[in-house]
Nucleic acid binder design. Structure first.
Length: 569
RNA sequence: GCGCCCGUAGCUCAGUUGGAUAGAGCGCCGGGCUUCGAACCCGUAGGUCGCAGGUUCAAUUCCUGCCGGGCGCACCA
């Protein structure tokens, strides 16, 4: 729909240029706004005003010229109006809106999908929590956002894949092993010294208990050092499985898992650094090796190999991103916690160091979740082991509600999440509002089929009876869906979808409350007296088609966010 | 001190990339089910868009400077 109008406008502009009425060579990109007030029409364009300066003409005159050159205006619009400064307000013929419903029914689950990605390959790295403990709420938000971005990009024609980078090497792993080993010793009745920076969470003891059960048979034959190693690898495996299970119960399957340790084993770190060395982007100073990040706009150079010969975390990350580039992705997206934002210039420097534009890597920042319980902030700390896990949140409020909640707000702003509120009022969580709209429509199908009615198809139905403002309003909202999805995907901002869905659901509820779709089950003579609109079979059929289209869009929208669209609730 | 993010209704937040009289949920107050699901709807109240300049036909949106909040600024990960 929007496309047809845009091309019509473009045609008018070009026509005017041919006649010499306009002289601008490159038109600005034509966007159509949905005006806020009904008297401003269905769609509005601001081209005339943005052309004012380059044309040296009054916006109103330019608008006039455009209108004169609208060759198919008669077929498309009921009304074309020029308002004050130079708004071009278009009222589209209902027949064209009605066609949108046929389009939606025809495309079904594909409605809202697009090809703008042209199959370009994108890798989205998200969550990537250290496998040293369960996922907490903050990870939940990152998971929801990353997952939604993957699905959004796939929806508009990219070939997008999600990946989890496992930090299974280095200091954190050693600490994990030592912590579990200490608890293991305690469980065996021996005193043990707990590592200073170890993990204090109670889950460590539980893991140690599991490991003890596995190791008790062979423990006698192992040296303490061996035992500690076994503790480390077993704990790692247990925790990674836990993370995977948590994500799965959150409805998230990450396609690819990438191990940091594999970079060490395969010497990929050496190779990646060697390549930097040949590009003269590494230098040695004070016994350490440095990456010349400052050449590419980072504030300072960064150590990649310490005096003691150990690699820094950055070295692994360089090798990891080097590997991503080698795998041939057109675009890399890292979903970072906002506290890592200082890392962005550094990683974009890495892109450039390997000869790519810095925007080959895009970063989606996810601000930390401020967790509340009864309006009191819950402090979280891995050190003391006091934190609310993602699992708890899912168990308390459900995966759908948690996801929707995490996706409701722009990811780079703070999110308040009150557990008690979410629990107590789970029934009026916005996600249920949207899902309820879907379920309500489904219930129409059930009632209709009980009455032996057949669901009408859009093509065979006379849709011209859909002229009520509430009906056309719904259709307009539906027609805006594909553009919304595209904008949301390209900006990596899933919250636009949740916002849209709430608006659409609101319109549906309003409609549902005000108008009937199916005739009343029993004939009631006295009810037709008051304000009842005439519900002809024709109108019922057309409205059923409309309801079907709304259902499709609600389902597609929820689906792209990874949220279910239940038929009853 | 430097850098990034944020500041919009009592609270939590949107605002379609610069458009017209700035919106929603919650909360407050008042209404609406004998009929397709009331997990819903309708109405009232609530605003100097942090402050001050600038850019232009037009600024909540872009620029500059302040103020306030959060987070970063390791040979840690």
């Amino acid at each position: 729909m929007q496309e047809r109008v845009t091309t019509a406008l473009l045609g008018a502009l070009n026509g005017a240029r041919l006649k010499g009425q306009l002289k601008t060579t490159a038109w600005p990109t034509l966007t159509l706004d949905a005006p806020k007030r009904p008297e401003w029409g269905d769609l509005a364009s601001t081209v005339a005003m943005s052309l004012a300066s380059s044309e040296h003409k009054a916006p109103h005159d330019i608008a006039q010229i455009i209108v004169e050159n609208l060759s198919q205006g008669e077929q498309l619009f009921d009304r074309v109006e020029i308002v004050r400064p130079g708004f071009l307000n278009l009222t589209v013929k209902p027949a064209l809106w009605q066609e949108v419903l046929r389009e939606i029914e025809l495309q079904g689950v594909r409605y809202g999908r697009a090809l703008v990605g042209a199959g370009r390959r994108v890798l989205i790295e998200y969550v990537s929590a250290n496998p040293t403990g369960p996922l907490h709420v903050g990870h939940g938000r990152g998971a929801a956002v990353g997952h939604a971005v993957v699905r959004l990009l796939n929806a508009i024609g990219y070939d997008a894949v999600g990946e989890y980078y496992i930090n299974d090497a280095g200091r954190q792993m050693k600490l994990l092993g030592a912590s579990v080993y200490a608890r293991y010793q305690e469980l065996s009745g021996r005193t043990a010294e707990f590592p200073e920076d170890g993990y204090h969470g109670s889950y460590i003891t539980i893991v140690a208990q599991q490991i003890k059960e596995q190791l008790d048979l062979v423990a006698g034959e192992l040296t303490p050092a061996d035992l500690e190693t076994r503790c480390r690898t077993l704990a790692y495996q247990i925790l990674l499985r836990l993370i995977r299970d948590d994500l799965r119960s959150f409805g998230i399957e990450i396609q690819s898992w990438f191990s940091e340790a594999s970079l060490l084993e395969s010497k990929a770190i050496e190779r990646a650094l060697d390549e930097l060395k040949t590009r003269e982007l590494l230098f040695k100073q004070d016994g350490a090796w440095w990456f010349r990040a400052s050449v590419y706009g980072d504030e300072k150079d960064r150590v990649v190999k310490k005096q003691d010969g150990e690699y820094t975390y950055l070295a692994s990350d360089i090798a990891y991103h080097h590997d991503k580039l080698r795998r041939g992705y057109d675009l890399l997206i890292d979903v970072f916690g906002a506290d890592h934002h200082g890392y962005i210039p550094r990683m974009q420097a890495v892109m450039q160091a390997y000869g790519h534009p810095k925007d080959r890597l895009q970063v989606v920042l996810v601000q930390l979740v401020k967790l509340l319980r009864n309006e009191v902030e819950v402090k979280m700390s891995k050190r003391t082991g006091e934190f609310i896990t993602m699992r708890e949140v899912i168990d308390e409020v459900g995966a759908d509600a948690a996801k929707f909640y995490f996706l409701m707000r722009d990811s780079k702003t703070h999110l308040e999440f009150d557990l008690e509120l979410a629990k107590q009022r789970s029934a009026d969580n916005p996600v249920y509002y949207v899902q309820y709209a879907h379920a309500r429509i489904c219930s129409l199908w059930r009632v209709a089929s009980e009455r032996g009615m057949v669901r009408p198809s859009a093509v065979e139905t006379d849709l011209t009876v859909l002229t009520d403002p509430d009906e056309l309003g719904l259709i307009k909202k539906l027609s805006a869906y594909p553009e919304m999805i595209q904008a949301s995907a390209l900006a990596f901002e899933p919250h636009r979808v949740t916002y849209y869905l709430q608006q659409l659901a609101a319109q549906l509820h309003t409609f549902y409350n005000k108008h009937r779709v199916l005739p009343p089950a029993t004939d009631q003579e006295h009810n037709e007296s008051v304000s009842a609109e005439v519900l002809t079979p024709k109108r019922t059929a057309a409205r059923l088609v409309l309801m079907g289209a709304v259902q499709h869009v609600l389902r597609n929208g929820l689906n792209v966010l990874g949220i279910s669209a239940p038929e009853h609730m």
